[in-house]
């Protein structure tokens, strides 16, 4: 089966189009800043999880074409993560560095979130073919950070929730499944053939 990269690219832009549409029509709800921050944060996590699901899905379904979109999906996680960080630092904190640094130092969930973003940076920077050929085996080692970043994302989410943990627990469970599917115990599983 063929996979149209351009189609996936446009699909991945839909969340951004949706939130921009809401913003233009002034229909972001009572707390638009919170809405934008939560929305971009959630989509960062979604794209991290979607990216992690590619390898097991390819194996389970025997659909090799999936590999062609993995890098793009990972970069979209970085893209939405950047929007998330910018909306926190910009529209929420007005780039008042004093407040932001205080937040990072004093509030672990901010520190965890920022750490997750910082760990995405080398992955985004080395996502090109040149870096793959240059780094060789080390590239694969480096990109194991893709397992760590979503864990930080889930923790970041769980830590800020006031009381109802259902949603972060759901994403945490999904992440555990995606990681477990990589264990030797499950690595022989196939759906097709």
């Amino acid at each position: 089966m063929n996979l149209d990269k351009r189609g996936v690219f446009l699909l991945a832009l839909l969340p951004l189009l949706w939130i921009s549409w809401l913003a233009f029509h002034n229909t972001l709800g009572a707390n638009p800043v919170e809405r934008v921050i939560h929305f971009t944060g959630l989509w960062t996590l979604y794209f991290l999880l979607i990216t992690l699901s590619i390898t097991p899905l390819r194996r389970l379904l025997g659909w090799n074409a999936l590999l062609r979109i993995r890098r793009m999906l990972g970069l979209f996680a970085f893209f939405y993560g950047t929007l998330h960080l910018l909306s926190y630092a910009g529209i929420d904190q007005w780039f008042t560095w004093q407040a932001i640094i205080h937040d990072i130092v004093k509030h672990p969930y901010i520190l965890i979130g920022v750490s997750g973003y910082v760990l995405m940076l080398p992955l985004a920077l080395t996502s090109n073919a040149w870096a793959v050929s240059k780094l060789k085996a080390r590239w694969k080692q480096l990109h194991r950070l893709a397992y760590v970043v979503p864990a930080l994302g889930v923790l970041h989410f769980a830590w800020l929730v006031k009381k109802d943990m259902n949603e972060p627990l759901l994403y945490g469970a999904l992440l555990l499944v995606l990681l477990a599917l990589r264990l030797p115990l499950f690595s022989q599983w196939r759906f097709s053939r």
């Binding site: 009572a30 707390n31 800043v33 919170e34 929420d92 407040a99 205080h102 937040d103 004093k106 509030h107 672990p108 969930y109 830590w159 800020l160």
Partner: peptide, 10 residues
Amino acid sequence: RWSQATERRI
């Protein structure tokens, strides 16, 4: 877990 120094007016 979070700052109470400032607030966002709805």
